[in-house]
């Protein structure tokens, strides 16, 4: 079994198969909160354990998939273009909201990591965590953080925001669709957007474009912030 599986095509098939299974289960369940990773990741872990293949071999074999993170980020340019009308109509609000979101995100991670005396690797991996995973991973690699810790933190933040987001919006009386969309998209990227789409079309669209803009702002804010605090 191990001989059959321990090669690159098998590992790539494992990734694509587990991903498709996760997407299929999510679609069948109709739950926006069900992240495909809840299915895909346990499936991959189980198969690696059963066949006794080391995780490092799995990751090495998937470099082709990993490579596409960069092109994925570039492709978000089209998403921005598709939302150009909403952006230009609300330019001041959207830009200020995204700027304050990214600055507060970086500063609060720094403050909390220092207060809780967390290791440097946590700080560098978490600073870009309010951003969609492909961009967050790129920023984290630049900073010298850990890619995996960033990826998992990003997904968890997606969950956290999607679950408690609607409550926060209600408590702080954010009623405008644009404010709601920005709050969900800036804090919780993909999963937040899935939730925002359920609130309304404008909320969903704004949340989607916030993902890309938040990535740009955070890519600038993180190195600037680290320069200021002397990290």
């Amino acid at each position: 079994m191990k001989e059959l599986m321990m090669n690159m095509p098998a590992m790539l098939a494992l990734t694509t198969g587990a991903y498709l299974l996760g997407v299929w289960v999510k679609r069948k369940s109709g739950l926006s909160m069900l992240h495909p990773f809840l299915i895909s990741v346990p499936v991959v872990i189980a198969i690696l354990k059963v066949t006794d293949i080391p995780c490092s071999f799995y990751i090495e074999s998937n470099v082709i998939i990993d490579f596409f993170l960069g092109p994925c980020v570039v492709a978000l340019g089209l998403l921005l273009y598709d939302h150009r009308k909403i952006i230009s109509r609300n330019l001041v609000g959207i830009l200020s909201a995204v700027t304050s979101g990214s600055v507060v995100g970086v500063a609060s991670v720094y403050a909390m990591c220092r207060m809780l005396r967390l290791d440097e690797v946590f700080l560098l991996s978490l600073e870009p965590k309010s951003v969609t995973a492909p961009i967050a991973i790129e920023i984290s690699t630049f900073l010298g953080g850990d890619q995996s810790l960033t990826a998992v933190s990003v997904v968890l933040c997606g969950f956290i925001g999607a679950v408690i987001g609607p409550l926060i919006l209600k408590v702080f009386r954010m009623k405008s669709p644009i404010a709601k969309g920005l709050a969900m998209g800036c804090a919780s990227h993909g999963l937040g957007t899935a939730r925002a789409i359920e609130m309304g079309a404008v909320e969903g669209a704004v949340s989607g474009l916030a993902i890309a803009l938040m990535g740009v702002m955070t890519a600038v804010a993180v190195p600037l912030f680290n320069l200021i605090v002397g990290l």
Binding site: T15, V41, I59, I65, D66
Partner: peptide
């Protein structure tokens, strides 16, 4: 999502 699965598994 599929593109950050390898990073996630790390």
């Amino acid at each position: 999502m599929i593109f950050f699965m390898p990073a996630f598994m790390g």
